[in-house]
Design a protein around this nucleic acid. Structure first.
Lengths: 236, 236
DNA sequence: TAGAGTAATTGATGGTGGTCAATTCACATT
DNA sequence: AATGTGAATTGACCACCATCAATTACTCTA
C-alpha cells in the first residue's frame, strides 16, 4: 500500500452526489485534501472484527467486502461497499469494537480520516451530521430488508433479488429488454453474501436457467431473459 | 386514545439515561413539554407500512412491535421497542415510506413530535444529532447481528439467544444461579420474532427442556436450569 | 499445447423445519 | 362441575438445503 495525494476534487464530487446528497462539495473537499490516501490491493484488510476503530475510511475507488464470521468460521458478507462510500463508521459511531472485518476485493484507494480529525472536521459540521443520519437510516433499512429476506426466502429467491439489484445498479441500455450482466463475484463469494453454499448457488443458478429466467454464458456472464418474472420471484 | 399532558420531567430523565446518554435532560424536556402525549391500547397501530411518515413517536410507556410483512402475509418482527425509545425514525430520517407497521403491544403513552417541530427542535440541536448517529449506529449493529443470526442459526439457537436476551434485560437476583423468567410473548409472537412458526417454537422449547437447559412451568414461566450452556448455545 | 491447480458442477444423503391435521391444555363463563 | 373457546402441543409428511464426495470445466503457466 503506497501513499499518494490522489483524493482530490473529483472524488469529493462523487461523494456528494451519492453518499451525502445534501452536502456541498466544498465542505467535503476542504476536509479531504489534508488527509492520507492509501492504495490497497485485493486481499488486504482494512480492519478486523474485535479491533478498536481508529477512524473512518472513505473509499474513493474499488470495492470492500464487510463480513462477519461465526464460530464455525463461516463468513457472512453483511455489506459490499463500492466507491464512493464510507467504511468502518458503524463501530466508530456507536463506540463499539468492530463486529466485522473489511477486506479489499479490488484494488482500492482509501482515504483514512483519524478519530480526532473526524470529530473535529466532520461531526462538528451540522450539515454533515444531518446527512449522516439519513445515510445511517438508509443503511438500517437495507439491513432490515436483508434480515427479512434471509429469514423468509429460499436461496433461489435471494439469488433472484441479488441479480435484480445488480441489474438496477448497472447502467442498462434501454433499447432491449434482454440484458447481459457480469457476475462480480465467484460462487463462493456469492454464497457468503446470500448465506448459503457455493453448491446451492450453482444449483439455484441452474434452476433459474431451467425456468428460462436467465441464461448462463461463459466468463460469469448472465443473460436476463425474463426480467419481469425474475423481479416477481425476487420479492417473495 | 385519549389526550393528556403526562410526558413530563421524569420521562425526559428516562430518555436521557438510556436513549441519548450524551444529552442533557433540559434539552429534551424543553422540547417535550410542548407536545402531545396520547394513550394507546393493545392492538392500536401507530403507523402502517407504505404510509408517509408524519413525525416521530417517543414511547414514554408501554411496548411497540415493529414488523414487516411479506406477500404471503407472514409477519416478521424487526424490532421490539420498549419505553423509553423512539419509534418511526428510520423512514422519517431516510426520507422513505414506512417499510414496517408499528403496533402497540401493551398500553402505551406516546409523545408525537411532528415533522416541523422535530426538524426545528431536535435536528437543529447538534448534541441531539450527535446522539442520534450513535443511536442509529447501535441499531444498525443489532440489525446486522440479527441478520447473521437468522441466516446461520437453527431455531433452537435463535430461541436460546432470545431467552438470554430476556434474562440479561431482567433485573436478576444474584443470589442464585437458577432464574425464573416470564415469557413476555405468545408462541405466535415469538415465532414472528424468530422468523419461524408457533409449532417450531413449541418444539424448540421442548428440545431445550429435554436437554435440561430450561424447565417449563405454567403461565408462560420458564426456569433457567443451565444458563451457562444456554449462553453457549446462544452464540453459535 | 499439455498439465496442474483451482473453480464449478453434479449426485447422493440426512437433518432441519414448515405445513396441515388432530389432539390436548388452559382458562373463563355459566 | 360442565362447557366452550382459543392457544399450545404433538404427529406425519415433505420441501429445502447443507454436507460430502466425485466429476467436469476453467485458467494459468511452462
Amino acid at each position: 500500500m503506497k501513499n499518494n495525494k490522489d483524493c482530490q476534487k473529483h472524488d469529493c464530487h462523487a461523494f456528494t452526489k451519492t453518499l451525502f446528497k445534501d452536502l456541498f462539495v466544498d465542505d467535503l473537499c476542504g476536509i479531504f485534501k489534508h488527509n492520507i490516501v492509501n492504495t490497497y490491493e485485493r486481499g488486504n484488510v482494512l480492519f478486523y472484527a474485535g479491533n478498536q476503530p481508529l477512524g473512518i475510511y472513505f473509499l474513493c475507488k474499488g470495492q470492500v467486502n464487510i463480513y462477519r464470521a461465526d464460530q464455525m468460521g463461516r463468513r457472512q458478507i453483511v455489506r459490499v461497499a463500492k466507491a464512493p462510500d464510507m467504511v468502518g463508521y458503524r463501530a466508530f459511531l456507536s463506540g463499539e469494537l468492530y463486529a466485522a472485518t473489511a477486506e479489499i476485493m479490488s484494488e482500492a484507494q482509501v482515504c483514512f480520516v483519524d478519530r480526532r480529525t473526524f470529530e473535529a472536521d466532520f461531526l462538528s459540521n451540522p450539515r454533515f451530521l444531518r446527512s449522516l443520519t439519513s445515510y445511517l437510516a438508509r443503511r438500517l433499512g437495507e439491513a432490515e430488508d436483508k434480515e427479512v429476506s434471509m429469514s423468509r426466502s429460499t436461496v433461489e429467491e435471494r439469488l433472484a433479488r441479488y441479480l435484480v439489484k445488480i441489474i438496477d445498479a448497472a447502467p442498462v441500455s434501454k433499447t432491449t429488454s434482454v440484458t447481459t450482466i457480469k457476475l462480480p463475484a465467484s460462487r463462493s463469494e456469492l454464497a457468503d453474501f446470500l448465506a448459503t453454499t457455493p453448491e446451492s448457488v450453482s444449483r439455484s443458478l441452474n434452476a433459474l436457467t431451467g425456468r428460462k429466467l436467465i441464461k448462463l454464458l461463459k466468463k460469469n456472464e448472465i443473460v436476463i431473459i425474463d426480467g419481469h418474472r425474475l423481479r416477481f420471484l425476487a420479492n417473495r
